[in-house]
Amino acid sequence: MLTLFTNRYQAFQPSQGVPVRITLGAPRFKLPYSLTHAVRELAPRRDYFSKPLAEFTAAYRADLDAFGAAWIAERLTAISKGQGDHRLVLLCFEDLSDPAQWCHRSIFAAWWKDVTGDEVRELGPRADRYEQTTLL
């Protein structure tokens, strides 16, 4: 069993699950938790990073399609099994408290739902449907 969530580095709490970096670069600020896992393939590439949302989304989803859900699930499951926790929290930098802000973790969540049928819940400010009992 694998349960995926998303959040930002600054808002993550260890009680949420296992933190997993999905950015090219690691945070340059001190974190109050250990960040030992990264899946760099889930980070957007530099060549489209600054593109408008529609172009960015198309390019990023194409990258995800190229890796495929089975390969991504295998990578994430290996982390989950190694940590003995089915809850992985995919982390990046963006603060989604501004409704106009968008981020690749949200695009990943939508893609994952489209290809696997499994929901990836945001634990940050847009967690309007999130229920605390989900973490247990």
Rank of each mutant, 00 (worst) to 15 (best):
L2G: 01
K113F: 00
Y9L: 03
S106V: 09
Q83Y: 01
S15F: 02
L135A: 10
Y48C: 09
W111F: 06
L136D: 13
A70E: 12
G82E: 03
L4F: 02
A38C: 01
Q132Y: 05
D118Y: 08
R105K: 13
I79Y: 06
A69I: 01
L135F: 03
S80C: 05
F67R: 13
W112T: 05
D47E: 14
K30P: 00
R75Q: 15
R8V: 00
A62F: 02
D128A: 12
A78K: 11
R46M: 12
G68E: 01
L31R: 08
K51G: 02
S80D: 02
I79D: 05
V115D: 07
A58K: 14
P32C: 08
T134H: 14
Y60G: 07
R105F: 06
A66E: 13
F56E: 07
A100R: 13
P44Q: 04
G25A: 14
E131V: 10
S106N: 13
D98Q: 09
R126K: 14
S106W: 05
I22C: 03
F56Q: 08
L123W: 11
F5R: 06
P125L: 09
R45V: 01
G68T: 06
G84W: 13
V120Q: 03
V18Y: 06
S97P: 05
A127C: 15
R45G: 10
Q132D: 09
Y9N: 04
T3E: 11
L90K: 03
P27T: 01
P52F: 01
E74L: 12
A100N: 09
P44A: 03
E122D: 15
A54Y: 00
E122L: 02
L35D: 03
T3L: 10
W102N: 08
F12A: 01
A69G: 03
G82N: 07
G17R: 00
R121H: 14
C92W: 06
E55Q: 11
R87W: 00
P125W: 07
Y9M: 03
R45H: 11
W102Q: 10
T116K: 09
P44R: 06
R129D: 14
G84F: 12
M1A: 12
V20W: 04
G25C: 08
E41N: 04
G117Q: 04
M1T: 11
R8W: 00
Q10S: 14
F49R: 08
P99G: 04
P19C: 00
L2I: 08
A69E: 10
A59K: 09
G82T: 05
T133S: 13
E55A: 09
D118F: 08
W102P: 07
I22S: 02
F49P: 01
Y60A: 05
L2Y: 00
G82C: 07
S97D: 12
D95Q: 03
F49A: 10
